[in-house]
Amino acid sequence: MSTATDYAQAGELKFGQVGIANLRVRTLDVAQLVTEMRERIQRAPNLFSRAAIVLDFGGLSHPPTHASAQALVDGLRSAGVLPVAVAYGTKEIDALSQQLGLPLLAKFRAQYERSEPSAPAAGLQPATTQAAASPAVATPAPATAGSSAPGLIQTTPVRSGQQVYAEQRDLTVLTTVGAGAEVLADGSIHIYGALRGRALAGAQGNMEARIFCREFHAELVSVAGQYKVLEDIPAELRGKPVQVWLEHGQIKLVAMD
């Protein structure tokens, strides 16, 4: 009697939304790039330590040599992050990715980068401004430009390690976003509980997007790529209802009570 063959797969491969950082190299100064990365990790180790990084050389006039790119990969690893791929698919970059032994993500574009070719490259950009002082600045969130789909409503808590993404629409979370969790939206984000993880609005470059939360303890907040981590946020905002938005390209935070 023959034995039935088991065709069940040992591993299930799926493609989905992945939280991954894009390092757009503007100046190929390996020492400076490594120093900047070390500083990011020192400021927010829970966010950046051992973070997966895609190297984007699209901001350079000429692709780097294999030696300089390899030096950058080695330096970033020593700093504490993990380069996992190379972005963009020119013939030269393709060859470079093969020399580095890294995959080429030909269609990769950071979630925070605007899709227009003429727009400045974003990636996550640290904001330098302080929290807005006057709550009078706060205004109701405008309608999200280009968002035709109804908003996505998340009714259960977003727990550590989970990610919720509202593509081309707003996101409303009726409960909490736990530490280590991530919520993203191409539009605005409304959180009716505590925000302890990361919230990234305007993920495709919408600078009109905003973040609202009832209890602010965020590890990171970002609007159209401009971001602040918890260590950079004034202590008086923690635990308060907070609104986050961009003004003249700079991130603003204000308590709403």
Rank of each mutant, 00 (worst) to 15 (best):
M1C: 05
S2L: 15
S2I: 13
T3N: 08
A4T: 10
Y7G: 11
A8N: 07
L13H: 15
K14C: 14
F15M: 15
F15A: 12
G16R: 14
G19E: 09
L23P: 01
R24S: 04
R24Y: 06
V25D: 05
L28I: 10
D29N: 07
E36R: 02
R40K: 06
R43E: 03
R43C: 00
R43G: 01
L47C: 00
F48E: 02
F48N: 06
I53C: 00
D56R: 03
G58R: 10
G59Y: 11
H62Y: 08
P64E: 03
P64F: 01
T65K: 04
H66G: 12
H66A: 01
A67D: 13
Q70L: 12
G75Q: 07
L76Y: 11
R77N: 15
R77E: 05
L82R: 12
P83H: 06
V84D: 02
A85E: 05
V86P: 01
K91I: 15
Q98E: 13
Q98M: 12
L100M: 02
G101K: 15
G101Q: 04
L105H: 15
A106Q: 11
R109Y: 04
S115E: 12
S115Y: 02
P117K: 14
A121C: 08
A121S: 05
A121D: 02
P126L: 03
P126A: 07
Q130D: 13
Q130I: 14
P140R: 11
A141E: 12
P142V: 09
A143L: 11
G146P: 05
S147M: 06
G151I: 08
L152S: 04
I153M: 04
T155M: 07
T155P: 09
T156A: 12
R159M: 07
V164R: 13
V164T: 05
A166L: 10
Q168F: 15
D170N: 15
L174K: 08
T176P: 07
V177Q: 01
G178T: 06
G178N: 03
A179P: 02
E182K: 03
V183G: 00
I189A: 10
A194T: 10
A194K: 12
L195G: 06
R198T: 01
L200W: 13
A201V: 06
G205S: 02
G205T: 04
G205R: 08
N206H: 11
N206T: 11
M207T: 11
A209Y: 06
R210P: 13
I211A: 10
I211D: 03
F212P: 05
F212D: 07
F212Q: 12
E215I: 13
H217I: 07
L220Q: 08
V223S: 04
Q226V: 14
V229C: 09
V229S: 04
L230Q: 10
I233N: 03
P234Y: 06
P234S: 02
P234I: 01
P234V: 00
A235C: 09
A235V: 11
G239I: 01
K240Q: 15
P241M: 13
V244D: 07
L246Q: 05
L246Y: 02
G249R: 15
Q250R: 11
I251V: 13
K252V: 14
L253K: 09
V254F: 10
M256Q: 14
M256C: 15
M256S: 06
D257W: 06
